[in-house]
């Protein structure tokens, strides 16, 4: 136990990075996924096909392969994200490792976000969008004012699953130079082989807390939107 509690700041810093990766990648995935979903259901065939191709590509590729591509293949052709390291958030310097992990997680997760949103959009009866078009709303307004607000409720449960998966997927970043929770766990177990089981349990507990927080927020949102009408 004291392997963790004796170095509790390291443990917290590890989960701090895990949460940081999950939140930054989560927000970016949400934005990119929303654009992809709009393109997929939108009236421009070229965009719809491009978004479809994107989803096929990233949903069918293992996350590890995406990471390897971003962290190893891209630097070979000169894309290293090094220039980003001059940016400081408070007294914390953004590392190129962090940025690569965010890029990989975002590219991968946004494909799932897109599909979650699309399933929500498909759950809204077509008559809603037709009536909205019939009063003269343009495509953006139809989506923003009529379809997406109704899709949101249907989207919450699958979206929570996507974000839970994302939280756990951040652990892959451990293999690419980021001292997030999983990497911290390995460091602890290397130094304290006799306390392996406790360390595993305490790290698992950290993930459970984060995942339960996401699940709880999702139930709360679902309940709130249920009473809204």
């Amino acid at each position: 136990m004291e392997a963790v509690f004796g170095n509790f700041d390291v443990y917290l810093a590890g989960f701090g990075l895990t949460i940081g990766l999950a939140v930054v990648s989560g927000v970016l995935s949400l934005l990119l996924g929303l654009l992809l979903a709009a393109a997929r259901v939108g009236p421009v065939p070229v965009l719809a096909r491009a978004a479809g191709l994107y989803v096929t590509l990233f949903r069918n590729t293992p996350l590890l392969v995406v990471f390897i591509f971003i962290a190893i293949a891209l630097p070979r052709i000169g894309i290293t994200f090094q220039s980003i390291e001059v940016i400081a958030v408070g007294d914390y310097n953004v590392s190129a490792f962090f940025v690569r992990a965010v890029v990989a997680l975002t590219l991968y997760t946004s494909a799932f976000v897109c599909e979650a949103i699309r399933s929500g959009i498909n759950a809204v009866p077509v008559g809603q969008a037709e009536a909205a078009r019939a009063i003269g709303l343009d495509f953006g307004q139809v989506m923003r004012l009529v379809v997406l607000p109704q899709a949101a409720r249907a989207v919450v449960p699958p979206m929570a699953s996507v974000f839970i998966a994302l939280t756990k997927n951040t652990s892959i970043a451990a293999a690419f130079g980021i001292a997030e929770a999983a990497a911290t766990m390995r460091r602890f177990t290397n130094d304290n082989a006799d306390q392996r089981v406790e360390i595993f349990l305490l790290v698992a507990l950290g993930y459970i807390v984060i995942v339960e927080a996401i699940a709880f927020s999702s139930y709360a949102l679902e309940r709130r939107w249920k009473v809204a009408r």
């Binding site: 009866p125 008559g127 009536a131 003269g136 709303l137 809204a228 009408r229």
Partner: peptide
């Protein structure tokens, strides 16, 4: 935009009402 403007000039009433549920 021109098509949206045209649709604003033409009212439509559907068999299944299609009022905005939210």
């Amino acid at each position: 935009k021109a098509l949206a403007n045209l649709r604003a000039e033409v009212g439509m009433v559907f068999q299944s009402f299609n009022l905005f549920a939210h």
